[in-house]
Amino acid sequence: MGINKLKILVLFIFYSFSLVSCQNKKMEEKYNWSGTISAPQEYPMEIYSGGIIANDFTYPFDAIWGTQNTGWGNEGSKMNVATKKMEIPHQLEFTWYSLVEEKFYTGKWNLDKIKIEQLFKEGFIDTDTGKKQTYTTFKIGLAPKGKIVLWINAPGVQKEIGSFQAHDTIITKAQAYENAQYMFENDYAKERLKSDFLMTSEVKNRLSTSGYPDPSIYENFRKKYSWKPVVELPSGFKIKKIFFMACNGEYDTYAENQNKKAIPYYLSIVISDVAGKELGANLFFTKDEKYYEENVLKGNNVLPTDFDLTDMYKTFTSFSQTEPVDIIIKVNPENKSADVSLKQKENSIQLKNFISKIY
């Protein structure tokens, strides 16, 4: 009789734990999210296979995604999925072909699910509407030398949530699946890079005059500094909002309490005059005079292909990462001009490589 009671007690405890476990699984929050790919304009990447993996869903990638080079941090193609809400992913796996290097890279990495879930739950406040929003897209950044970055994205905000190292691998035509056979045609990479539709005139100009950026530049772009914008305006004018896009692929509305940030290549300052009329002052840090017409006017605030050659980038990288940096911006709304300088301690450098648009 004592043994039977013990068995009943053990079974009761077992089923209790099972019930709690099932309830916890049911209670795991789900979100609407999708995936996309980013790659530098000057280093096109061919997609072979991959997936953003959650317990209840895998967002897949294969050769149908083709060549991706929309710009570092920029969004590539997107595929619709039937599943409306999914758990937070816990793993990323990816294999791709770097056309310039003519190498395949592959890897599988565990994601910080707790950190990602916290970011999704906390969300952010949309500065235009004042409403709470959350993230909607996982963006995979493919860089040379097998570097891979993962961002989470929503309109107006993008944050890095992981950086990984893939290893090179060999895939033969005999091993490749049917839809990827085209990658193994003779001189496929060389011929693809010659395509007039693959690279813009801006990219071609960069490559012909200065060559390819150092493959490690995308890792260097991840370095962060304690910078803040210091905007000098005429009397009666006020700052309403500052938005930035950084060379590491992150972008957000500037706030005083933010942590260190990567070097910005774009600053958008919304100001108001004495009568309350809003004006915009946009700064694009590039040497390319055609950048605004060829990119921004087409709705594409992409990282300039010459950003690593600008005095903005070179000056920042000559500064200490531990000391604060002021980006001093003098805006003259009347003649629609702006001056920009960088200052760290007593060291002040006037910048020349930028385009200003005030409207």
Rank of each mutant, 00 (worst) to 15 (best):
205 N>H: 14
233 L>N: 00
300 N>H: 10
221 F>H: 02
216 S>F: 08
232 E>D: 06
300 N>W: 10
193 L>N: 13
230 V>Q: 08
256 E>C: 02
217 I>L: 15
226 S>P: 01
211 G>C: 07
219 E>F: 14
229 P>M: 01
231 V>T: 13
289 E>V: 10
245 M>T: 01
251 Y>F: 00
219 E>G: 10
197 F>S: 15
295 N>F: 09
196 D>H: 12
234 P>A: 00
275 A>M: 14
265 Y>F: 10
194 K>E: 14
241 K>G: 05
298 K>D: 12
218 Y>I: 02
216 S>H: 15
258 Q>M: 09
211 G>L: 05
202 E>N: 15
288 D>K: 13
278 E>L: 10
271 I>R: 06
192 R>P: 08
244 F>I: 11
230 V>C: 07
214 D>L: 13
292 Y>P: 08
233 L>K: 08
233 L>E: 00
231 V>A: 08
251 Y>A: 02
237 F>Q: 09
197 F>E: 14
263 I>R: 05
230 V>W: 03
205 N>K: 13
264 P>M: 01
256 E>R: 13
195 S>C: 11
261 K>M: 11
283 L>G: 07
262 A>H: 11
213 P>T: 04
294 E>V: 13
287 K>I: 07
225 Y>D: 00
249 G>K: 04
240 K>H: 12
283 L>C: 14
259 N>W: 07
197 F>T: 04
287 K>V: 01
296 V>E: 02
236 G>H: 05
282 N>P: 14
290 K>N: 14
301 N>T: 04
263 I>K: 01
269 I>S: 03
226 S>T: 08
245 M>R: 15
205 N>R: 12
289 E>N: 05
209 T>K: 09
207 L>D: 00
279 L>G: 08
304 P>C: 12
216 S>E: 07
286 T>I: 11
195 S>F: 02
297 L>C: 10
280 G>A: 05
273 D>T: 10
273 D>M: 03
280 G>E: 07
224 K>D: 09
208 S>H: 02
259 N>L: 12
242 I>V: 06
267 L>T: 02
227 W>H: 03
230 V>A: 13
234 P>L: 03
264 P>V: 00
204 K>N: 15
259 N>R: 05
240 K>P: 03
296 V>I: 15
255 A>T: 08
232 E>G: 11
194 K>F: 13
191 E>H: 14
278 E>C: 06
238 K>T: 02
220 N>Y: 11
247 C>S: 12
306 D>E: 08
282 N>D: 15
249 G>R: 04
299 G>Y: 07
247 C>P: 06
230 V>I: 08
195 S>D: 05
236 G>C: 05
242 I>N: 09
199 M>S: 14
206 R>I: 12
232 E>M: 12
234 P>K: 00
250 E>R: 07
210 S>E: 09
239 I>H: 05
283 L>V: 04
